[in-house]
């Protein structure tokens, strides 16, 4: 237990810091994922064959290839791509991309692919009657979108988004290639140095469980709150 104490001799503070890092990178990844999902949802719902094809390609590939490979590909690919773009602008130096940003980006890509499916399903699940009713009340354009469509989509998508969040949270355990010290990397370091993998893996499991349970509670609270009057 001494090993888990706080301070310079124990690993407790490092583990806690890593836990906060996992949470922070998951939040950023999830936010990025949802924002990135929006254009893909629009593309999937559009009438254009090409736009649909692009969006389907994105979601199929990202959801069909192991997360570890996606993370490696985007980890190495993103810096190559950024340097390529920089060259076009005539910038010849090297750009360091912060490990946190790369980590959030990689997991965010995965979250985006799953969120796209969730959001698309939610938009399609809005009862047609509601939209027709709104129109007959004279609600259209922006008011229809922001007043009816978006709130309804979010409400319907909430459980699905909760699942994607859990997925993203767990997938952050795979970003240790970026060098970001999240729970998994810290566990690896600590168990390597102390030769006590059992203790640190149990600690890691408890930290992940705390994060997933805690966030699950928030999602359930939100679901109950926003489904008032529907159930």
């Amino acid at each position: 237990m001494e090993l888990l104490s706080f301070g310079d001799t124990g690993w407790g503070d490092e583990m806690l810091r890593a836990c906060i890092m996992t949470f922070a990178v998951s939040v950023c990844a999830m936010s990025f994922g949802i924002i990135l999902a929006i254009p893909f949802v629009i593309m999937k719902l559009s009438n254009s064959f090409i736009l649909k094809l692009i969006a389907n390609f994105f979601t199929t590939v990202v959801r069909g290839v192991p997360e570890l490979l996606i993370i490696y590909l985007f980890f190495f690919g993103s810096s190559a791509a950024i340097m390529f773009i920089a060259r076009i602008f005539g910038y010849n130096g090297y750009i360091e991309i912060n490990a946190f940003i790369v980590g959030a980006f990689c997991v965010g890509i995965i979250a985006a692919a799953y969120s796209t499916e969730v959001l698309r399903g939610a938009v399609l699940a809005i009862p047609k009657g509601q939209i027709e009713a709104s129109k007959s009340f004279g609600i259209k354009g922006k008011r229809l979108l922001f007043g009816i469509m978006i709130p309804q989509t979010l409400r319907i998508a909430l459980p699905g988004i909760g699942n994607v969040w859990q997925l993203a949270l767990k997938d952050t355990s795979l970003i240790s290639v970026t060098g970001l010290v999240e729970i998994m990397r810290q566990t690896h370091i600590s168990s390597g140095v102390t030769r006590q993998p059992f203790l640190f893996l149990i600690t890691a499991a408890i930290l992940y469980l705390t994060l997933t349970t805690f966030s699950n509670k928030i999602f359930i609270f939100a679901e109950n709150k926003y489904s008032k009057g529907y159930v």
């Binding site: 795979l174 690896h188 993998p197 893996l201 499991a205 997933t212």
Partner: peptide, 15 residues
Amino acid sequence: RGTPLLVQIYFIYYG
């Protein structure tokens, strides 16, 4: 369901 598979694999192999 609340922990990453990676933790589970490490646990069984090294833990």
